[in-house]
């Protein structure tokens, strides 16, 4: 039991250290313009990278055919996100689409 607590504490510490790393040094002088330009691309890059694998290779292999229901549901959800800009609506339509396709195909 003690082993679990020590390891979990260690996991928490390294995670916190990474999250705090740059924030802790902010405020000591301005961010260089080149860095600021680069940081602008962190949100679009990271958010897409977090979402894409679960949609394009849901079973572990790349699947761009109609048998990939996650791809169809994800594409419809992306379209909804583009048009409505509503997160709630995007998730609702995406999940409903996934369940419908699953019910039709199985």
């Amino acid at each position: 039991m003690m082993r679990y607590w020590l390891i979990i504490l260690g996991m928490g510490l390294v995670t916190y250290a990474v999250r705090l790393s740059i924030i802790a040094f902010s405020g000591r002088g301005d961010v260089p313009p080149a860095v600021r330009r680069a940081l602008r691309f962190v949100p679009p890059a990271v958010l897409t990278a977090l979402a894409a694998p679960a949609i394009i290779r849901p079973e572990g292999v790349v699947n761009l055919s109609v048998t990939n229901i996650q791809l169809i549901a994800g594409s419809v959800a992306a379209l909804v996100a583009w048009k409505t800009r509503s997160a709630l609506f995007t998730i609702a339509v995406g999940m409903a689409m996934l369940w419908t396709l699953r019910a039709v195909l199985h």
């Binding site: 958010l47 679960a54 996650q70 583009w82 800009r85």
Partner: peptide, 23 residues
């Protein structure tokens, strides 16, 4: 497939992050 809700959330959040050609 409840876990699919998380990638969908990120899809929704990509939208406001893409503002021009470079993003």
């Amino acid at each position: 497939n409840l876990e699919f809700a998380l990638p969908l959330t990120f899809v929704a959040l990509v939208r406001p992050a893409v503002t021009d050609r470079a993003t």
